[in-house]
Amino acid sequence: MSIYNEVHRLRRNGFSNSAIARKLKISRNRVIEYGKMSPDEFYLFSISLQNRSKKLDPFREEILKWLKEHPDLTGAQVFDWLAERLDVSFVAEGTVRSYVNDLREAYHIPKILSEREFSAVPELPLGQQIQVDFGQKRMPTSDGTYKRLYFIGFILASSRYKYVEWLDRPFQTTDLIRMHENAFRYFGGMTIEMVYDQDRLLAVSENAGDLIMTAEFTRYQQTRKFKVYLCRKSDPESKGYVKKRIM
Score class of each variant (00 low, 15 high):
E6H: 07
E6Y: 00
G14A: 02
G14D: 01
S16C: 04
S16T: 12
I20K: 04
R28D: 14
N29D: 14
R30Q: 13
I32K: 05
I32H: 00
E33R: 04
Y34P: 07
Y34V: 01
K36L: 09
S38L: 08
P39C: 11
P39I: 09
L44M: 10
S46R: 05
I47S: 10
L49H: 01
L56V: 02
D57F: 00
P58E: 00
W66I: 11
E69I: 04
T74D: 03
A76I: 02
Q77N: 14
V78L: 09
F79E: 13
D80P: 03
D80N: 09
L82A: 06
E84F: 02
R85V: 11
L86T: 04
L86V: 03
A92D: 12
A92W: 00
A92C: 08
Y99L: 12
L103N: 04
A106N: 03
H108D: 15
P110N: 08
K111D: 07
I112S: 01
L113D: 07
S114P: 08
S119M: 05
A120M: 10
Q131G: 13
Q136Y: 01
M139S: 01
S142K: 09
Y146P: 12
Y146E: 12
Y146G: 08
R148C: 15
R148T: 15
L149H: 07
Y150P: 13
S159E: 05
R169Y: 08
T174D: 15
D175S: 05
E181C: 09
A183C: 11
F184S: 03
M190N: 03
M190D: 01
R200N: 15
L201I: 01
N207P: 06
A208T: 14
G209C: 09
D210S: 14
I212Q: 02
T223D: 13
T223I: 06
K225P: 05
V228W: 00
L230C: 11
D235M: 11
P236N: 06
G240Q: 04
Y241R: 04
V242L: 06
